[in-house]
Simulated assay, not measured.
Amino acid sequence: MVTQKVTSLDVARLAGVSQSAVSRVFTPGASASQKTVAKVRKAADELGYRPNFLARAVVSGKSRIIGLVVAYLNNQFYPEALEKLTNKLQERGYHVLVFMASHQAGNIDNVIEEILDFQVDGIIAASVALSSDLSDRCLAAGVPMVLFNRVQDDPAMSAVTSDNIAGGRKAAEFLLAGGHKKIGYIAGWEGASTQRDREAGFRAALHDAGAELHARGVGNFTSEQSRAATLEMFASDPPDAVFVANDHMAIAVMDTLRFELGLRIPEDVSVVGYDDVAVAAWPTYSLTTVRQPANRMVAETVDILLSKIEGPDVGPHRLEIDGPLIVRGSARIPEGWKT
């Protein structure tokens, strides 16, 4: 037996209101009296009615759906940031569709094309980069986009990041103040702007102090490659301190140093990370790290995107937000340092 689909007209008849009143009740931000809302929702519940937002998007040209693209979720920073982004967008009356894309493979173009098929009002791309052709495609489709925790050379692309160069400088200055002479660095994925800028700031601060990088490895933002980079770095002439491009890798580095190489942290080697994810504060790690100000980054990202949705002529906006160095127990604390 085939059950006929309940329509908004059915709800309007049962509630004794117009079909447009039903539409207003189920449209975020639309005006409807409490009495009308109560009658419509009661009728909808009795009939089992659910509004078809995608069909409404075809008619109105606005879906109130945001496409959220993320490269990976194994880094604890991203599940937390995505939760904050989703909550903030929902507070503003938008729904979120999440799409996964590899941060290294070239399939991001296909993912964005798929998102555009869903008639989204805007796109947030978290830690992924786009080709210039794809940026032009989104622009031509009238779909604004904001990069979250990434930047790229395209001046027309809006982006929100932490101040990665300043963060890298803070890590170097802290380790130098602690008297370290042989300082190593474990990099993330070389194609990421966050990796590039954190290393640039770190190296610049070392150079300003007349120091040089003692050793460098590549962890590629993965635990496995961070472990391998650590074993190689400490095989001969090991450093006495290591700055790691994010906390996800830093945790793997610390485990490798302690449980495979038998080194003490921070007595034998200091470790500093970047992000300040929840696990960094666990007593097991007590990781000194540069905090990404996720709450403000999320708020600014949503504000920029919605301003572009509401005002198509709004120009690109780039924002770098400074984050503090959070001093814990994984690195030698310089004498007189204020924590």
Score class of each variant (00 low, 15 high):
129 A>Q: 14
129 A>I: 09
83 E>T: 07
101 A>C: 11
124 I>S: 07
85 L>D: 11
75 N>S: 04
129 A>E: 09
129 A>Y: 10
83 E>G: 12
92 R>A: 09
132 S>D: 15
82 L>W: 00
117 D>C: 06
89 L>E: 01
106 G>F: 13
140 A>L: 10
99 F>E: 07
77 F>D: 00
80 E>H: 12
134 L>V: 05
82 L>V: 04
98 V>K: 04
103 H>T: 01
141 A>E: 12
77 F>N: 01
142 G>P: 06
119 Q>V: 09
96 V>G: 07
123 I>W: 02
115 I>Y: 02
108 I>H: 10
105 A>K: 14
101 A>F: 10
85 L>V: 14
103 H>Q: 12
99 F>S: 14
85 L>R: 10
98 V>C: 12
136 D>T: 09
139 L>T: 13
125 A>Q: 08
75 N>V: 00
117 D>T: 10
130 L>K: 02
131 S>Q: 14
93 G>M: 10
140 A>D: 13
130 L>F: 05
107 N>T: 12
128 V>L: 13
88 K>T: 15
95 H>T: 13
95 H>L: 13
112 I>T: 03
119 Q>A: 14
123 I>T: 06
108 I>A: 05
123 I>D: 00
111 V>Q: 00
101 A>Y: 12
85 L>F: 03
133 D>I: 00
119 Q>T: 13
80 E>F: 14
102 S>R: 08
113 E>P: 03
138 C>P: 05
104 Q>Y: 04
84 K>N: 11
101 A>W: 09
126 A>Q: 05
79 P>A: 06
139 L>D: 12
124 I>R: 09
118 F>A: 05
95 H>M: 13
125 A>T: 08
78 Y>A: 02
94 Y>A: 01
101 A>I: 11
125 A>Y: 04
141 A>N: 07
77 F>C: 02
132 S>G: 04
